[in-house]
């Protein structure tokens, strides 16, 4: 299967192409750059390296979030339009799940997170089993202190991984103590190849209905709902 995968959820941008199910080319840029300018030229580059034409593709994989709202939409708009106009299936996978899947330990919980500012994080809890990566707790937007308590209550060894800069290291060790390990930096950046591999075993969804997973309501909408309740 020829798969094109795109992840523009956060600062790192990664695109990859699998040719007949095997990684042919991958490009990851972890610089503060403009995903909107870079993503399609990056796609063009990996496709050329793989000697593939757009019509050779059979599946598009997209990291659906959480992450930067704008970043998510840039990737999602590109991926949806590619899948729709080529009339091929699209699979959307949690950006956090991709990070978790890069951790190979089987006997520990894997807790990927992205900094969501003001002490909050986007986080989810995963575990690698013999059949693949399982979701233990779904992705959410949560205060880091609350999230660390959730992790503590599992009474399990936890591996924490994050591709965004954060200042939570001390807090993580304070609350989870001996039971936690922070992942090696080399494994903490999202690889679109992992996204592509995960996508091959997941069911595709209708392209039109697909939208990013923001895990946070727009402030104006939250305020409006609040006002409705008061009435």
């Amino acid at each position: 299967m020829n798969v094109l995968a795109i992840d523009t959820s956060n600062q790192p941008m990664s695109v990859a192409v699998l040719k007949e199910g095997v990684l042919a080319a991958e490009l990851t840029i972890n610089m503060k750059r403009n995903h909107s300018i870079q993503v399609m030229p990056a796609v063009d580059y990996v496709m050329n390296q793989a000697d593939l034409k757009p019509k050779d593709l059979q599946l598009v994989a997209i990291a659906e979030g959480p992450g930067s709202y704008t970043g998510l939409r840039i990737g999602m708009s590109s991926a949806k339009s590619l899948a729709w106009s080529l009339d091929i299936p699209i699979v959307a996978i949690s950006s956090l799940k991709v990070l978790a899947a890069q951790v190979t330990d089987q006997d520990k919980l894997i807790a990927p997170f992205f900094d969501a500012r003001r002490g909050n994080v986007y986080a989810g809890l995963y575990e690698r089993t013999t059949t693949g990566i399982e979701t233990i707790q779904s992705d959410r937007n949560v205060a880091m202190t609350d999230w660390l308590e959730v992790l503590k209550e599992t009474n399990r060894d936890v591996i924490i991984t994050s591709s965004t800069n954060h200042q939570f290291t001390d807090e993580i060790y304070d609350i989870l103590g001996q039971n936690v390990r922070l992942i090696d930096p080399v494994l903490q950046y999202p690889k679109a190849s992992m996204l592509a591999y995960l996508a091959m075993s997941e069911e595709s969804i209708s392209v039109h209905a697909l939208a990013p997973q923001y895990h946070r309501m727009v402030e104006a909408e939250a305020k409006w709902l609040e006002k409705q309740k008061e009435r």
Partner: peptide, 14 residues
């Protein structure tokens, strides 16, 4: 950005 990236993807695909 939504429109621009959609247009680019379609132009590339075809």
């Amino acid at each position: 950005l939504v429109g621009v990236n959609a247009a680019k993807a379609i132009a590339y695909a075809h």
